[in-house]
């Protein structure tokens, strides 16, 4: 109430925070989709997912660098559209392949082992990728090529960066598209079948290994897009940039109901908006909100907002 009195346009401020939160939450959603898909099929929390997101940012950085659009020290030239397309394609393909490779080398050999073994392997892969990133990319902070020049877009009483708008639009298209893919196509049906009961799906003639590979490829591609979008909006690349993002996206996935794609999207948006709105009063506690929200949801509805109860297989 006190804030209401001291600042006349409190509503505009709240609206601005919601806009900030939607942009932030859209990236959470993109990354959360990867967690949720893998969990849906394998009941595995793929901790390496956040590092695939980091790789996505770096993989979309290098094409422009190789083509000379990141000269050292000098003013960076504008990157033409075809290089942007190239970088996008490279990042998505490379991350999808990385995702499949991780599954093939680290998780498939443990498919029938205890779930704890797979979980610890996932943590190991994550640590490996972070350290490999430090070696290959160095720990020096990297900026990002000028794919899109950041400008301010006024929206009524508020203003947002054009890159934030791009994030929201691209994330909505990707997650919406993925939802349709899973619900409407034969391959999507195979994924849902694997998620429901892998053994029966195999009996029905579903190629389980191929379906799992595809799940990892799609999830990793989504993370790659998330990494690229964030780097455009907040150009600062480090090998550990996935750490906090992975944590938030995982919370978003659980919040929305792990295993559900619309749930991941909803969880991401809710978390982003909640963080920003709480930040109106105190930014120091904004991160804590994510985890308090998680605890509350787990207490009230353990399966998450859109999660279905009783799907847990033991």
């Amino acid at each position: 109430m006190q804030l209401l009195l001291e600042s006349g346009d409190f509503l505009a401020r709240l609206l601005q925070q919601c806009a900030n939160g939607v942009a932030k939450g859209s990236v959470y959603a993109l990354v959360a989709v990867g967690y949720t898909m893998v969990y849906g099929v394998l009941q595995l929390i793929n901790f390496a997912h956040s590092d695939v997101y980091m790789l996505g940012a770096y993989f979309s950085y290098y094409p422009a660098r190789w083509l000379g659009y990141m000269p050292d020290g000098a003013e960076k030239p504008k990157v033409p559209l075809y290089v942007l397309g190239l970088a996008f394609a490279f990042a998505v393909t490379a991350c999808a392949c990385t995702g499949m490779l991780i599954e093939r080398l680290a998780y498939r050999p443990l498919r029938n082992a205890s779930r704890l073994a797979a979980l610890i392997t996932a943590i190991g892969v994550s640590i490996f990728l972070q350290n490999a990133g430090q070696m290959v990319f160095t720990s020096e902070v990297k900026s990002f090529p000028r794919y899109v020049d950041q400008t301010s877009v006024p929206l009524g009483p508020i203003a947002v960066a054009n890159t934030s708008l791009i994030i929201v639009v691209v994330a909505a298209l990707m997650v919406g598209g993925l939802h349709l893919f899973v619900q409407r196509t034969r391959t999507g049906a195979a994924m849902r079948a694997c998620s429901h009961d892998m053994r029966t799906a195999r009996l029905m003639g579903v190629n389980v290994n191929a379906t799992i590979s595809l799940t990892f490829a799609i999830g990793s591609a989504m993370a790659a897009v998330g990494g690229m979008l964030i780097a455009m909006d907040q150009p600062r690349l480090t090998p550990t940039m996935g750490l906090l993002m992975g944590l938030k996206a995982f919370v978003a996935a659980v919040l929305g109901g792990i295993g559900s794609i619309p749930g991941a999207a909803l969880g991401g948006l809710l978390l982003g908006v909640a963080e920003s709105v709480v930040g109106t009063w105190n930014t120091t506690y904004a991160d804590a909100v994510a985890f308090v929200a998680l605890i509350v949801v787990l207490l009230v509805k353990p399966s998450g907002i859109l999660g279905k109860a009783g799907r847990e297989k033991v």
Partner: peptide
């Protein structure tokens, strides 16, 4: 890397 929340508070 996302300072938008703080920037909104400052701008207000």
């Amino acid at each position: 890397t996302d300072f938008n929340t703080q920037v909104t508070n400052i701008k207000a």
